[in-house]
Design a protein around this nucleic acid. Structure first.
Lengths: 304, 304
DNA sequence: TTATCCGATGCATTTTTTGCACCGATTGTG
DNA sequence: CACAATCGGTGCAAAAAATGCATCGGATAA
């Protein structure tokens, strides 16, 4: 879009931090770029950058303008998506902020299903923790968020909520597989492989441990759910995950089963969007498909 | 704003209905304008106009684009207003859709009060009936609406609601001024000067008349509240208005008093904005001032 | 039929944008 | 302290884009 060029250039300067660097990125001369910025500021009525001896930085007015630029961009994308939709061809781009647990099975399958019917649609999958996901929505970086136990819930419209018990992962042949009911205290006797404190699973485990007067002392603490899954096959340790990221029969060398609800309360996997925002057609339809898929899981082992 | 020029031109073509007419309005050649439209359509990816033998008309894609253009414009205005606000000077433009009753006293006074403190702010006052007012908000033509008994109330965020009894207007010396309690049936014996059916006062009167088994047969029916006020000074007729458009002591040759509540239920004067929209600073502050002013009226004769 | 109004297009002209060379100012370094 | 390295800003000429003019072909109304 030619008429959005000025905005692109402004964003380039913001990213690069100086006109000269931004000029290289945008295949322009520093002088040309400089004058476009100055020209815009004149039209806009106020400077949007602070001139520092080492470059340019947005001033408060510039920050406000950036919000406008982002809104403008995503709203144009929405219109184009809707226009494509009414001419029959479903095009567009869907950007999702999601928890790691969705990566191995759920999202790949859902994306494949959607793309089978609408090959013109492309996807961005951004792995975000629960706080970042909300920021992503607020800055229009993502259309949909699918996260476990988000924190704030302001500016967040919940489209669907799927309950998820916390599952314990253990080596094949572990005695944990035998008990009629899996208690948290039994797990705590093993070495623990825990997600970092920012994650919802960890938060629920901390709550459960506190209520029985214990503290969690992780042997391995990580941000990678993948590592948790693989580590329990190496040592007789216990890891924790939510079932949507697990297969019903794990044949990768470990087993899993839900923790007793009285020890660790189930969390919620929330599908949401930014409050009040009208999504592009593609994102909206994909959201509907996700709701249907999540509804299908509800009541099955995936939620237990 | 130079970069919005294309949008202005598109709007000009929409208004004029043909490129050649729009070219005159915009001080351009038809050829230049034509090529800008074509250029935009190419960038946008789809035609936005239908080429008719007698001119141009928006196609469905164009209608969607117009929504975007309007949003874009008003959001830019919001940003500029906020920027002006943070640099101390309060600038901006406030657009209000309102009922006629607000014109004689209430709005002029409020605008004057606001402008005394913020001379940089300008106003548009658009007289709209209750249905049009909502459309104005939805199309971003107005920031605030101050209307009596709006109809739909979808997409409408009520900021404040002020109860308003329907008042009867009559010639000085009319027997209607004497009765201890003014009943609707007493008014119906006089010639009636009624607002057109689209107006809230008329609607409430119709309801009241129906409930006592009468019908309203207006001697004069008009869209002008001003005419109603003046007509009752000419003939011994009865007109109807809401008190916010009246002085406590009418010295213009007529008196007024509220109808009994059991005959005609009071309506509500609603201050509102479009649901979910973030208003520019100026509009937002003026809205707060209006709320304070309306609160001050509540409980006084203005609402009785 | 004829006159009229419409959008589209080739070509010359005007306006705008860009690149180049250079300035003054600030900062970090030896 | 000098010196090199950046930074944003500016005058001027070249390149690119937008515009105006003349004109075409098609549809419509009188």
């Amino acid at each position: 879009m030619r008429y959005l060029r000025t905005f692109e250039l402004i964003e380039a300067v913001v990213r690069a931090g100086s006109i000269r660097k931004a000029a290289e990125d945008t295949n322009l001369t520093a002088s040309a770029l400089n004058r476009r910025i100055q020209g815009f500021e004149q039209e806009f009525g106020w400077p949007i950058f602070e001139r520092l001896p080492r470059g340019m930085r947005l001033n408060p007015a510039g920050e406000l303008l950036m919000q406008h630029i982002r809104l403008q961009r995503t709203d144009l994308a929405r219109v184009q998506s809707q226009v494509a939709d009414l001419s029959g061809e479903r095009r567009g781009h869907i950007s999702i902020a999601c928890s790691q647990a969705l990566l191995p099975y759920f999202l790949p399958k859902q994306i494949a299903i959607y793309r089978a019917e609408h090959p013109g649609v492309t996807f961005s999958i951004n792995v975000r923790d629960r706080a970042q996901a909300e920021r992503d929505l607020a800055s229009y970086s993502s259309d949909l968020a699918l996260v476990f136990e988000p924190v704030h819930l302001v500016e967040f419209d919940v489209i669907y909520a799927l309950p998820q018990k916390v599952h314990a992962l253990f080596q094949n042949g572990s005695p944990l597989a035998e008990k009629p009911d899996l208690r948290l205290r039994d797990c705590l006797n093993h070495p623990l492989v825990l997600p970092a404190p920012a994650y919802g699973v960890r938060h629920l485990l901390e709550l459960g441990a506190t209520s029985i007067g214990r503290t969690l002392t992780p042997t391995v603490e990580t941000e990678s759910f993948d590592l948790i899954r693989h580590y329990v096959t190496q040592e007789n340790a216990v890891g924790f995950q939510i079932p949507i990221g697990l297969k019903p029969q794990q044949d990768a060398g470990f087993g899993h089963r839900p923790l007793a609800e009285r020890d660790v309360r189930p969390g919620q996997l929330l599908l949401g969007q930014m409050k009040g925002r009208v999504l592009p057609v593609a994102s909206s339809k994909f959201g509907q498909q996700l709701v249907a898929a999540l509804e299908g899981l509800n009541g099955t082992w995936h939620t237990s």
